[in-house]
Structure formats: structure tokens, C-alpha cells
Computed example of a mutant assay.
Amino acid sequence: MLRSSLEQQCPDRTRPPDSDLPIRSLGQQGLTQATWGPEKGREGSGESERSRDKAAIKIQAWWRGTLLRRSLLHAALCAWIIQCWWRLAHTRLSDRRRRIVLQLYARREWAVVKLQAMVRMWRVRRRYLRAQAAARLIQMRWRSCLARGLLRGRYQITATGLVMDMKLWAVPSKPRPCILPCADSGAGLRVSKT
């Protein structure tokens, strides 16, 4: 649009009518631009060119600084996003590891408790079976003595041991013990003869 209006006003494309402004061609497109200020060759044109160059340098420096600040801000935001993601991922990973370690610890503790319970149960069962066998032996001997009519008495089981009150009716020709004394119990036997 600017080109067509300038060509209509000034076919030689050197200057617009009624103006002192020179026309410069811009690039390959053939665009023209009017420059404001004195032409080259006039006095003081070098100072105005220098001031324009300084102004252009200032504008370019400002623009480069703006682009640099934008890119630094973008890089800082990207780094911040990566750091936030890594913190979240690291927290999840450490929680998962902590949970696995806790589960392994709980399994080991459960296995130890189970093993201890089995050993305790085995020991208690063994003790019970020994006591049961001893009780059966005592009952068998007691019943055999009662069946023969040799002994009369009673017995009582207390916390400290076995208390018995017995009476002998007849002495057999061959002494045979009816009740065997237990070596580890401190229970005393009272035998009375009649």
C-alpha cells in the first residue's frame, strides 16, 4: 500500500513530492521507507545516524534481555516442574520401600512368634503327657491295691503335691509296693497300720 501510493506520487522513486525525505529500499521485496531527518551529505547527519544506532542498539539489547529473561524463566519453570515430579516420585518410591520392609519385618516377627508358640505347645504337651502317664500309673497301682483289699485310704491332690491317707489291712507274704514314690515331687505319704 505504501509502495503504490509512493509510486503514484513519485514515479522516479527518489523522493515524495513536497518533501525533503529520501526513500530507502528495504530488502528484496522492494518495500520503501521514508527516512526522517537530514539526508546524507548534509551537516550533522553522522551524529543523527550515531544516535539512531545507539537507540537501535538499546532497543536490541532490551529485546535480547527480554528474550533471555523469558528463556531463563521458562527453564526455571521446567526445572521446578521436574523437581516437583521427582520429589513426588521419590516420596512414593520411599513409601513403597518402607511398606515392603515393614511387611518383611511383620512376616519375620509372625514366623518367630509362630515358632515360639509351637515350641511352647510342644513342651507343654510333653509335660502334660508325662503327667498323664504318671497319673495312669498311679491310678492303675491304686486300683490294683484296692482290688486286692490290701489298702484303704484316700488321696487328695493339692497345689504342692499329693496328700494320701492310707491304712494297711494285711501284709502280703511278699512285700510289693502299691505306689511308687516319685523322685521329683516333694509330696509325702502317710501310711498307717491297723
Rank of each mutant, 00 (worst) to 15 (best):
G186W: 00
Q29P: 01
V112T: 11
P172L: 02
D12H: 13
P177Q: 15
S185T: 06
L68W: 08
R130V: 15
I81E: 05
G46P: 03
I179H: 02
P17L: 04
L73A: 14
D18Y: 06
W80N: 10
R126G: 07
G153E: 01
R176E: 08
Q28G: 10
L68M: 09
R120Q: 07
D184I: 13
M164T: 15
R24W: 05
T158C: 06
R15A: 10
R176Q: 13
Y128S: 08
V171P: 00
R108M: 03
A76K: 15
P175E: 04
S173K: 12
M166L: 15
S5K: 11
L77T: 08
V171N: 03
Q29Y: 05
D20P: 02
W36L: 09
R107Q: 09
I157K: 04
H90F: 07
Q8V: 09
I179V: 15
E47P: 02
R152D: 11
K40P: 06
P181W: 01
R141I: 04
S94P: 01
R190L: 09
L129C: 06
Q116P: 01
P172V: 00
S5V: 13
L180Q: 14
A135D: 10
Q9S: 12
L31G: 03
G44C: 08
L129D: 13
Q28I: 15
R123I: 15
L93W: 14
A56Y: 03
A135K: 09
R64M: 10
C10D: 09
W85Y: 11
Q33D: 07
W110D: 12
L129M: 04
R96S: 11
M140R: 14
Y105F: 10
S48Q: 14
A56H: 11
R3A: 06
A187V: 00
T158S: 07
R107L: 09
W169K: 07
W86C: 05
T160N: 14
Q60G: 04
W80R: 14
L104C: 11
E39Q: 04
L68F: 05
G41P: 01
T91I: 05
K193F: 13
R97L: 15
V124F: 07
W63A: 15
C10R: 09
I157Y: 07
R87W: 10
L72G: 02
A75D: 08
A106E: 08
S185P: 00
W62F: 10
Q103N: 04
G27D: 02
P38Q: 02
V113S: 12
D165Y: 03
K114Q: 11
L72S: 12
C84H: 08
Q156T: 06
L102C: 09
A133M: 05
G188C: 07
W110Y: 04
A117V: 02
K58F: 05
I59E: 12
A183W: 04
K54Q: 11
M1T: 03
L104E: 14
G186V: 02
